[in-house]
Design a protein around this nucleic acid. Structure first.
Lengths: 165, 165
DNA sequence: CATATATCAGAATAACTGAAATAG
DNA sequence: CCTATTTCAGTTGTTCTGATATAT
């Protein structure tokens, strides 16, 4: 790939102990590229389905966990509670989620999916999900497991540098 | 992981041909989690180094390719030219990049890194890059290559659904 | 005149920080 | 009174679309 060639050109003399740097940079570029297409696909999905990737994921989790609270949801997604507020507000405005009161603790907000939300989440054509699903079928399970594990490691490693954790 | 357990609960009856859906969803959640920590780490880096992840990557590419044009840069990163405009403006405002005129074609804008930019890009402590670099060292090269390949496949697959391509 | 290059205008989500409101 | 939960206010970067200047 072009990017690989670009990044492989040394921008300074090779020093001691940084031989693998080019590999790391190449990997890094691949990560940002994936990040970028994820966000672009999310934006496209928003235009076509009226729902971004993160919003869709929240919807799925709520669908699978009726009456889940905002707190547990934030922790599940490793989001700052104030970030989730906006996401939930947008989903509520679109009548995809419904907010309930927790009878046991009035501070808490509970959420369930609406019929419209459920309908939307059932649609799988041309979603990020469908692309992932297709790809997974082209690779042996062992490889997928490896990728999954490395991704998780990387996420954990970066999470240590991150505010939310 | 908690998320895995959450997503594994079927939210509808298992139908024909979608047995692997839970796996795809789990994988998808891992992808979004990685996306999220990448952005969070990018935001933290912005506070600490005054530079986001994409900005840093642009800086590195310019460092390795003096007098690169905005167009080739955009194509390398698969960004819309108008997206890059903002990134370049911010880097220029911080005096990390310098804009040059192309003597051969006055429409083109060429960029080189400044000494300050070069200095900043040399700093590797607590960057996303350093985390990746460290992780790569803990895994056999074969695994890394597999991950790299799957990531590239996935990026390509999603790019087909994306505006910029 | 048509094409290529790049910027500008406008709009949206996501993400944070820090503060505030409410309830336990 | 202190803590927990959630929202609100304010800010920023990234990203797109569509339009616009400018040069080839």
């Amino acid at each position: 790939m072009y990017v690989r060639a670009v990044l492989a050109r040394p921008d300074r003399a090779a020093g001691e102990g940084d031989v693998r740097l080019d590999g790391a940079l190449d990997f890094l570029q691949a990560l940002w590229a994936l990040d970028h297409v994820l966000q672009s696909a999310s934006k496209r999905m928003e235009r076509e389905l009226g729902l971004t990737g993160p919003q869709r994921l929240v919807l799925r989790i709520v669908a699978a966990n009726p009456r889940i609270g905002a707190g547990p949801l934030a922790r599940t997604l490793h989001l700052h509670p104030s970030t989730l507020t906006g996401v939930l507000r947008r989903l509520e405005e679109q009548r995809l989620l419904k907010r309930l009161d927790d009878p046991a603790d009035a501070r808490r907000a509970l959420f369930t999916i609406t019929p419209q939300g459920a309908r939307l989440v059932e649609r799988k054509a041309r979603t990020v999900e469908s692309a992932v699903s297709q790809l997974l079928r082209t690779r042996p399970a062992g490889q997928i497991a490896t990728v999954r594990a490395v991704l998780a490691d990387l996420t954990r490693a970066l999470a240590r540098y991150t505010p939310g954790s």
